[in-house]
């Protein structure tokens, strides 16, 4: 009978499907999770139905996800997890050294092919909030893409990220949540973090807000760093991996540990989630790709001196012209619009 469902509304009318979306009935959840896997040709239809449910239910978080959180929090914390979080400076240094070598080693080896089924994308100038089938909330920043690996939420929970995303991962001990980027792999149980890995920027970073995450080089399980809340890790790409660089010798990627930055009480790394664009002593060179993605505009830096000017500013609802005007007030520059481009000059 379910095979006769041809439209999202056919699924939504089904009581068991609604309970699956609500997360209110364990049996319905199991049934539909399995059904989706067994009927990959219908996964698109199911996604649409789930999306409609999400909109019509006013985005109320599914019950099972909430219960998982409550369950996790009311159970005594696992010793294991605590041990993982302990951090020794010396150990960190060792880890990082190994990690760097691992990263370098990896960059010269092709990755095994992995199948990805569903993906979400944001163009320049817009952002998306997505709830993955396991209940994990993902905020996708502009110009980014996230792909779910085949069989997501069946045996494993793996996604691939290009660009920047903020994750609020639904707790599930049995199926650790993994994010793969070009430079590193992140494994979590249930936690909140931000990943940034744009091909056009010269570094990638992982910032941890809550819980704990393991950051692993792409080569294997040996090179692991565990982050504590408030910490972040930065990967500077070797120059040859950067878009536009040609004929440069491959260099060792540089890895750096740091702390997330707070401006008053706002965390700079995740401010974009609440629609804040923050520049914290950024040069025009650093702001350019961010502004291009955020506003979906094309910017050209026509002057080397101006490219190095430093700005600290916060924007939320301003349009690009207002932004330029306010930046001009901080440190003056000129700009002109030419052929759909904004050209910044002295």
């Amino acid at each position: 009978m379910i095979n006769d469902y041809l439209q999202p509304e056919d699924f939504l009318m089904d009581d068991t499907f609604k309970k699956y979306c609500e997360g209110s009935d364990e049996r319905c959840i199991r049934f539909w999770e399995k059904w989706v896997v067994d009927n990959p040709s219908k996964s698109d239809l199911v996604e649409k139905a789930r999306y409609m449910y999400q909109v019509l239910s006013a985005n109320i978080t599914p019950l099972n996800i909430q219960v998982n959180k409550i369950n996790g929090a009311t159970q005594p914390e696992k010793q294991l997890l605590k041990r993982h979080i302990i951090w020794y400076g010396a150990a960190a240094a060792c880890f990082l050294a190994v990690l760097m070598v691992g990263l370098f080693y990896y960059s010269s080896k092709p990755a095994p092919a992995v199948l990805y089924t569903r993906s979400f994308e944001t163009g320049f100038g817009n952002k998306k909030k997505i709830i993955l089938p396991d209940g994990t909330k993902v905020y996708l920043n502009s110009g980014s893409e996230i792909k779910m690996e085949k069989g997501f939420n069946v045996d494993t929970r793996s996604v691939k990220l290009i660009g920047e995303a903020y994750f609020d991962v639904a707790h599930n001990k049995e199926k650790p949540f993994k994010v793969l980027t070009d430079n590193f792999k992140v494994t979590v149980l249930g936690t909140v973090f931000n990943l940034k890995s744009y091909p056009e920027e010269d570094f990638s970073e992982a910032s941890l807000i809550q819980g704990s995450i393991k950051v692993e080089s792409n080569s294997g399980n040996d090179n692991v760093v565990t982050l504590r809340p408030g910490q972040k890790i930065l990967f500077y790409k070797p120059a040859s991996n950067l878009k536009g660089a040609v004929n440069a010798l491959p260099q060792l990627p540089k890895v750096e540990m740091g702390h997330i930055t707070k401006l008053d009480t706002t965390i700079v790394e995740t401010a974009w989630v609440t629609n804040n664009l923050i520049f914290n002593a950024f040069t025009w060179r650093e702001m350019e790709p961010m502004l291009e993605r955020w506003y979906g505009v094309d910017i050209e830096l026509g002057d080397e001196t101006v490219a190095g000017y430093l700005y600290t500013a916060t924007f939320s609802k301003e349009n690009i012209l207002e932004v330029l005007k306010r930046l001009q007030e901080v440190k003056h520059f000129n700009y002109k619009m030419e052929g759909g481009k904004i050209i910044i000059t002295k």
Partner: peptide
């Protein structure tokens, strides 16, 4: 009740998806 909701969902779907 069932039919009313079904028709409503159909309309919603046409616009949302």
């Amino acid at each position: 009740a069932y039919n009313t909701i079904y028709e409503a969902l159909k309309t919603l779907r046409k616009y949302l998806i």
